[in-house]
Computed example of a mutant assay.
Amino acid sequence: MLALAAVFTGCSTGGSAEPVQGPVIVNRVIPLDEPRPLGRLDKAEDAEAFGEAFRQADRLRGIPDVGPADYEIRYEAGGEPKQFRLWLGSSGGPGMLMEKSNTNTAYEIDSGVSEDLRQRIASIRYRTDRAEKNGDVIQGPGGTINVQVWHRFMEQVEQAHPASVQLALYTDEGDPIFHNLEYDGRSVHYLFDNSEDGYGSPDKVFETCERILSEPRRTAKPGWTGKVYRLDGCSDHGEGGGGRFEFRVEEDSRAL
């Protein structure tokens, strides 16, 4: 969660007044892993909104006590690349940004601007074709796609080799709920993120778990085998975090 613990210095970023050139590239920030692509905003008004938010943000004295950012934003202004991390905080509250090239300086954006950027990012539709192209493990009403990516991840875990995977589990309405797992050779770092679910209460939970457990599960299809994977030994195991992860896999056992 975003908790601004610093005070204003009374000046803005001093960013260039040059018009912003789109597209605006939006990546999700994953703690302890590389950012994952979410999508892009191609409208000129979207690009200018992000540029204006950066130009008008108020500099903070010191470095606020915050966790990982929500998003990484990239665009061009005056022909020069601009890249910053963006914290949107809780709904109705202020946000914060920080240039990726200068992590010693942070800037606050007011609640209205933060909410406007939140809505613009929410307009990005992370559909299954994009998720498949990005190498996600996908599961939803239409079945499971890229299950081999999950199996490769589990093979690395079993061999104690660092690995990461992103699961996009789709609701009946077609919205993704992200589950990011990053294995460092000893522990599993887990991020639950349903901020792209238009029908739920946006929430992000990050925690560390000891292991991934699997157990057989019955299937309704003769000749098929099934497993369910869960996290165990989590720092806040239960509804607050690891307890939200449950991945069910069914496979044709004749093809194994």
Rank of each mutant, 00 (worst) to 15 (best):
D110T: 09
V24A: 01
I138H: 04
G39F: 02
V149N: 09
R125D: 15
L181E: 02
T171W: 00
V113I: 11
T171P: 06
A131M: 09
P216I: 00
P37D: 03
V113Q: 12
N27E: 09
E196I: 00
E250H: 13
L88S: 11
R55S: 02
E182M: 06
Q166K: 03
K43G: 08
D136S: 01
V188W: 03
Y71L: 01
E115H: 11
D58N: 07
V157H: 13
T144C: 04
L32H: 14
N102K: 15
P162I: 08
Y75A: 03
F50A: 01
E99S: 12
Y229S: 04
F153V: 05
S101A: 14
G140L: 05
D236Q: 10
A77N: 03
V149A: 15
S114E: 06
G185K: 08
V26M: 10
G92K: 14
A131D: 15
L256Q: 08
V7L: 12
D65R: 13
R211K: 15
V20N: 01
K227M: 07
Y75W: 08
S187A: 14
F206G: 08
T105V: 14
E155Q: 10
E239N: 14
S235C: 00
T128G: 06
F192H: 05
H161N: 15
T128Q: 13
R125E: 15
G22C: 11
D252C: 10
A47E: 05
F50R: 01
Q148G: 12
I73N: 07
Y107W: 10
R230M: 03
E239L: 12
R120L: 08
L181N: 02
P162G: 11
C209A: 06
D42K: 09
G241R: 06
Q166H: 08
Q21V: 08
R59V: 09
E173C: 06
T9A: 04
L191D: 04
L32W: 13
Y107D: 07
R127S: 12
D65Q: 09
W224H: 15
Y170S: 00
L38K: 06
S195M: 00
E246V: 13
E72T: 00
L32Q: 10
S91F: 14
M98Q: 15
G143H: 13
F8W: 06
G92H: 10
R125F: 13
I63N: 14
F247N: 07
E182Q: 12
L181T: 05
E132C: 10
R248A: 11
A44N: 06
G89A: 08
Q56R: 13
D203K: 12
L181Y: 02
H151K: 14
S253A: 13
E196S: 03
Y229E: 03
R85D: 15
V137F: 05
V26F: 01
D175P: 05
D203W: 03
E34H: 11
D42L: 12
E34W: 02
T144D: 06
F206D: 12
D203L: 12
L60G: 15
F153W: 05
P176W: 00
G241W: 01
E158N: 14
K100E: 13
G93F: 09
P162F: 03
P81V: 02
S90W: 01
K43D: 14
Q156H: 07
E158F: 01
G226Q: 07
G78W: 02
V20Y: 04
I212L: 09
G233Y: 06
P216E: 09
T171E: 04
G10P: 09
N102I: 02
R40Q: 11
L181P: 04
H237L: 05
S16T: 15
